[in-house]
Design a protein around this nucleic acid. Structure first.
Lengths: 238, 238
DNA sequence: TATTACAACTTGTGCGCACAAGTGTCAATA
DNA sequence: TATTGACACTTGTGCGCACAAGTTGTAATA
């Protein structure tokens, strides 16, 4: 439950943009008008607009106003931290998740070679994502215990993020991602129905909590023919 | 020349983190201390810290402080909008750029199929990026005229971004990127020294100005063996 | 007519304040 | 001893104000 005034405004405007109350090419009401509309200070409205700008929903133009952008942000997978389930719903794809493996290990496998050496137990979860019945992605998740004390099969079959955030109250903060192309072994190649070339797109990510502790490591192997990564970025000069 | 107080503070702290004046695992001085240190209001300091947070340099923790993160943000290519030249310097790589082609076309080639139909002239620029003497990336840039009135060969050989921003005063604001894996034609395959499989990583991006006008389209073909895309993302729940 | 000047809007930057809420320490208390 | 509570720190949220700076239309002016 996030309910700060600023987030309420952000979500409300985002929704209105989504439902074309404010359409691409149009300007939002001015900051002063929004300020009055929501009964909030201009500062508060400005923070909300700043978030919408980071999300790529609007572009603020000095002296003119906030222009609604036309960006189809949803593809597969989307930039940022988003779960397969959320994407599935957003895209309305015919997608399915099959849990291939779920067990608790005493420690992280050595081949992951993580320097932040957590000598902890981990849940190892292997899932296959199918799109239109065709294997598209093989996910290998390593969830550290603690903070993940338990991981029911039902959660693994649906969204682990929803389970962790809603059920366990774990707060996910940020993640790093690395995308490369790799030769994969026969097991992965067969699972993904790769051709003789046996190359897959590997998305390797580490997810952290608010206290900066490492919490999840994921190796995601994508069928190259299905893979698409979409990103929105603002220019920053530091 | 960006010289708002907030950006000065952002840059100063970013530099101090880079030079380990503030090291990973340590906390920055508190907002009140920084406020006094820079002779700025806490609000101003907070905006600067917010930017550093977006960049992934720090993590703010309520009740405790701003923790310096340990993230090697530079890889090839980096997330966000950054030019090859900037990357080159940041990484200290042995990299070289060869201009293969530069001409002015009457309109954008039809195969790019851009809906935002600019019936404008474009500069077409083809460049090969070599790392350690090996071909790594083939860039095909389409720069719209206007706003790009001219494009000297010297600029193409160095950083076009530096030329456009510093010389022409063009302000780049944001970009969309799409990463896919594609079969490529013989010309690209030979140029990149691909093996018989002829698949390359295509990074297709569109860059926009502050007034949201489309300004540059780039198709970047990467040798799969060299390709690596690194990203830092914060969790946003909208 | 063409230019200039102004007014009325917009967003950008910065100041200061108040209080909520999370964290850690330390002393008083049961 | 173990718990509680007060206190001093931290960041988070929100308010209000002032002025700078960019945009646009209009009216006065040359």
């Amino acid at each position: 439950m996030e309910n700060s005034k600023q987030e309420i405004i952000t979500r409300d405007i985002a929704l209105k943009i989504k439902h074309k109350v404010y359409s691409p090419g149009e300007y939002l009401p001015s900051e002063n008008q929004l300020s009055e509309l929501y009964g909030a200070a201009r500062n508060t409205v400005r923070k909300a607009l700043g978030d919408l700008m980071d999300l790529g929903l609007i572009q603020k133009i000095k002296g003119k106003g906030s222009l609604v952008l036309d960006i189809q942000r949803y593809s597969f997978p989307v930039s940022g931290i988003t779960s397969f389930k959320e994407l599935n719903q957003a895209l309305g794809m015919d997608a399915e998740t099959k849990v291939l493996h779920l067990e608790e290990l005493d420690k992280l496998p050595a081949n992951l070679s993580i320097e932040e050496i957590p000598a902890k137990k981990v849940f190892y979860l292997e899932r296959l994502r199918l799109i239109d019945g065709e294997p598209a992605v093989l996910d290998r998740d390593y969830l550290l215990n603690p903070p993940v004390k338990s991981l029911p099969l039902a959660a693994a079959e649906n969204s682990i993020y929803a389970y962790l955030e809603d059920e366990l109250g774990i707060k996910i903060s940020y993640a790093t991602k690395e995308i490369t192309v790799r030769k994969v072994d026969d097991y992965i190649a067969q699972t993904l129905h790769l051709d003789h070339d046996k190359r897959a797109v590997l998305v390797f990510s580490k997810t952290y909590l608010e206290d900066t502790s490492l919490f999840q490591i994921t190796a995601s192997y994508h069928n190259p023919d299905e893979f698409s990564f979409n990103d929105f970025a603002r220019r920053r000069k530091i």
